[in-house]
Design a protein around this nucleic acid. Structure first.
Length: 779
DNA sequence: AGCTGTGGCAGGGAGG
DNA sequence: CCTCCCTGCCAC
């Protein structure tokens, strides 16, 4: 196999790499049932633009002049990591002397490029990757979950508080072993010592847990500090080293305490779940219990204990708590099994450590692959280009209302196909690696997918599926990399070429549909929803029609049939609802249903959409009355009217923004502040609105759901009735004004009569303000 | 001290 | 009222 993709080092069953200090790397190889340790000399390096910046650095080092036109023309190699940092300071001093300006950190200094992870550097320069020649099942994976005691009235257990402590440590591994370290029979110090013994004895390559980086390991480490038990669970006998870490999935950041254990990997299934949902966006929460049910991995008859009842169970019914902790660890194992096979196969390709790769983004992975090729070729590397991308996908809507049946067709792998077809790559990629990598990954993915489809063995199939999905993730990131401001090889002009070509292809597809008698409803980036021509009836004919479309597209561009729906509600661009032939309802976009809405709003809209798709007008009216009654008579539970919002910024950043007048006060942040809890970025805050006026300001009248008392409900019913009407108003445009008022209003003198009421279809005029035709029919 | 992109909608709050 | 700006959530 090509060395661009897999590096140039032969397979060797390497499971971990860890710096041992003094310019030495320790390598851990997994033979059948034991781990062999070897040491190798390691020379850290960075790239430099101007040789003279390092003139005053006198320790032993080597500077290699590179070939090619790249900005970073010198490769500087050092004895050990400490010398490298000294050299970084020297470069910064030299820069300050010539420009009289000192950069805050080396990352702000364009003259220097440094890959800060020694393990990634080592793998990159030796052409190695982890796990080469291994399958996912060859890894020994241990799962860990702790239960903690909360002594006072506070809600969360705090390892620094007297009386709070670890009461159970549940452990398991993928070789069928399960064990409970039970606090009923020993002191906490004895529990922690047993934990150290067991980790050493079972000697796992990987330690897995749900929120293990955010909770379990930091908690354990703090308690080890108070009890004086050293947590020497590294393969070299060392204790973990921690550092505050951040990463981001999609548009929200996640904070965690990075924990580095020598010779092992730490995998946090919470981060895997968040990373999964960053793409799919279909989960309601990221908790272990929800995630396990979401993926269908919950054990039969699983024991559940509410988080704030753990201490009570410990005092009154510890046996139940033990069962609960075992179920937690089993679910963690199943979740890790399900979600970490793909990153495992990613690690066989990308030079980087397994655990770190699961926490880093795809641009970093592509860059590591590019860098490996450039370092090996002794080729100078470019600096990131200035500017920004200016175009994106084409989105439009032509019809609104209740339609159907409809067909969805999309271009397969639109952006990767365009890049390969038109040979679009960063101009700065003088070695031509970018397209070679993209091409090889694409070929490899197709081969893997074919092999998977041909295989009858379910284990083999799932292994191959994990492999092909890891390739797919990389493939789809190549376009994003082009437009990424901090990428060394970015190229905004080429990113624009990709999107404008995509727009042309989509318009061409729309023309073909119209030309053959179809009606386009909505388009978005690479797909079209349309009403097929009169003559095309039934799925078989629709598939044939899409095949015809495909044959009309440029060579290398394939259009696929991706679904048929008996009814559709077209609402806004990127916002619509579909009814499948089996009666399942799919709602897309955030304007109809969004996670930031109150729960009752989500269920009201979901049911209303279902009824509208079935044209059950009488049902819509009953639904509205039902919700109206339940809100005004305070029949709703706080969970149904609470709003749940994720926090994007740390509280301090919010407070600074408000003080500086740059941002408005917001209820979620105010509730988080008032709670006094340690709140992290990405945490979700649940609150509700109090008061009596429907038009109160949210940030002044909000309370945490924890404060709601069912015996003295204080939710603002006027406010929530107003919200109900706002939700109902979403359906206004589907009906004539007087009909809408009849459906979504309380009963008056005459009973509601649905006869003659039908949902409307309205064409959307291109580039026109819609004030002209709508406001005309006032009563 | 970690991050792939653009396009689009809703809602809150401030201020006219 | 309305407009503007910001944030959050979402499609692709």
């Amino acid at each position: 196999m090509s060395d661009l993709l897999f590096g140039h080092h032969p397979a060797e069953r390497l499971v971990a790499v860890h710096p041992a200090g003094d310019g030495v790397m320790r390598l851990y190889f997994r033979d059948t049932d034991r781990v062999r340790i070897e040491e190798e000399r390691f020379f850290p390096f960075f790239h430099l633009s101007r040789r003279e910046l390092l003139a005053r650095y006198t320790r032993r080092h080597w500077i290699k002049e590179l070939t090619g036109p790249g900005f970073y023309r010198y490769l500087c190699v050092f004895e050990d990591w400490q010398s490298l940092w000294e050299a970084v300071r020297t470069v910064m001093d030299a820069y300050a002397a010539t420009t009289l300006e000192r950069p805050e950190s080396f990352q702000n200094l364009v003259d220097l490029h440094l890959l800060t992870d020694p393990v990634a550097q080592f793998l990159l320069q030796t052409g190695r990757t982890l796990f080469k020649g291994m399958a996912f099942d060859d890894l020994v994976r241990m799962q860990l979950d702790i239960e903690t005691y909360t002594s006072g009235p506070h809600r969360f257990s705090n390892p620094r508080k007297a009386g709070d402590r670890i009461i159970l440590i549940a452990l398991s591994d993928n070789r069928g072993w399960e064990h409970m370290i039970d606090g009923r029979r020993r002191t906490e110090a004895a529990m922690l010592r047993e934990l150290v013994e067991l980790v050493r004895e079972r000697d796992p390559d990987v330690i897995e847990g749900h929120n293990i980086l955010g909770f379990d390991l930091p908690y354990i480490l703090t308690r080890c500090g108070s009890t004086g038990v050293p947590l020497e669970i590294g393969r070299d006998g060392s204790a973990p080293v921690t550092a505050e870490g951040r990463t981001s999935f999609g548009d929200h950041g996640v904070e965690f305490t990075n924990t580095d254990i020598a010779g092992r990997h730490v995998i946090d299934t919470l981060l895997l779940v968040q990373s999964y949902d960053a793409v799919k966006r279909s989960m309601e929460s990221y908790g272990l219990k929800y995630a396990a049910r979401f993926f269908g991995l919950s054990p039969e008859g699983r024991t559940y204990v509410e988080g704030d009842r753990i201490s009570w169970y410990w005092d009154n019914d510890p046996a139940t708590l033990v069962r609960y902790a075992f179920d937690d660890v089993r679910e963690t194992r199943a979740l890790a099994e399900h979600l970490s096979a793909s990153p495992f196969y990613m690690a066989r390709v990308v030079p980087g450590s397994y655990g770190v790769l699961t926490r880093s983004g795809s641009a970093a992975k592509i860059e590591a692959l590019l860098l490996r090729a450039y370092v090996r070729a002794r080729q100078a590397i470019p600096r990131p280009g200035e500017g920004a991308q200016t175009s994106g996908g084409y989105t439009d809507i032509f019809l609104k209302g209740l339609l159907g049946p409809v067909v969805h067709a999309d271009v397969e792998s639109l952006y990767p196909s365009i890049m390969l077809l038109h040979r679009i790559a960063p101009v700065s990629d003088t070695l031509g690696v970018f397209l070679q990598l993209l091409g090889q990954l694409t070929t490899l993915r197709l081969e893997t997918k074919r092999a998977m489809q041909a295989s009858a063995d379910p284990r083999e199939r799932s292994r191959l599926d994990a492999m092909q999905s890891s390739f797919k993730i990389l493939i789809n990131s190549f376009y994003g990399y082009l437009g990424y401001g901090r990428a060394l090889f970015n190229d905004f002009g080429q990113a624009d070429r990709v999107t404008t070509t995509g727009q042309q292809i989509l318009r061409q597809m729309m023309e073909e549909i119209t030309k053959h008698g179809g009606t386009v409803i909505e388009v978005d980036t690479d797909g079209v929803l349309f009403v097929p021509p009169e003559s095309v009836k039934g799925e078989q004919a629709e598939r044939t029609f899409v095949a015809l479309l495909s044959s009309r597209m440029p060579r290398g561009i394939a259009v696929a049939f991706s679904g048929r729906y008996s009814r559709m509600i077209s609402f806004r661009k990127k916002n619509y609802a579909l009814l499948t032939d089996e009666g399942r309802v799919i709602i897309k976009g955030s304007s109809l249903i969004s996670r930031s809405m109150e729960g009752f709003g989500r269920s009201f809209i979901r049911k209303a959409v279902e009824l509208l798709l079935q044209e059950d007008i009488a049902g819509l009216h009953r639904l509205y009355l039902d919700y109206q009654t339940r809100i005004s008579s305070r029949k709703l539970h706080v969970k149904e009217f609470a709003r749940v919002e994720g926090l994007k910024d740390p509280l301090a950043v919010y407070q600074e923004g408000v003080l500086a007048g740059q941002r408005n006060r917001s209820a979620a942040y105010e509730v988080a502040l008032a709670s006094g809890h340690q709140v992290k970025t990405g945490d979700r805050i649940a609150y509700y609105i109090t008061g009596t006026d429907a038009n109160v300001r949210g940030f002044e009248n909000c309370r945490s759901v924890d404060e709601w008392n069912p015996n003295f409900p204080d939710e603002n019913t006027a406010f929530y009735l107003r919200r109900l009407n706002e939700f109902a108003a979403k359906f206004q445009e589907f009906f004539l004004p007087h009909q809408f008022r009849e459906i979504f209003s309380p009963e008056d003198l005459f009973p509601f009569d649905p006869a003659g009421i039908h949902a409307q279809v309205t064409p959307v005029a291109a580039e026109m303000d819609e004030s002209g035709d709508h406001g005309a029919d006032e009563p």
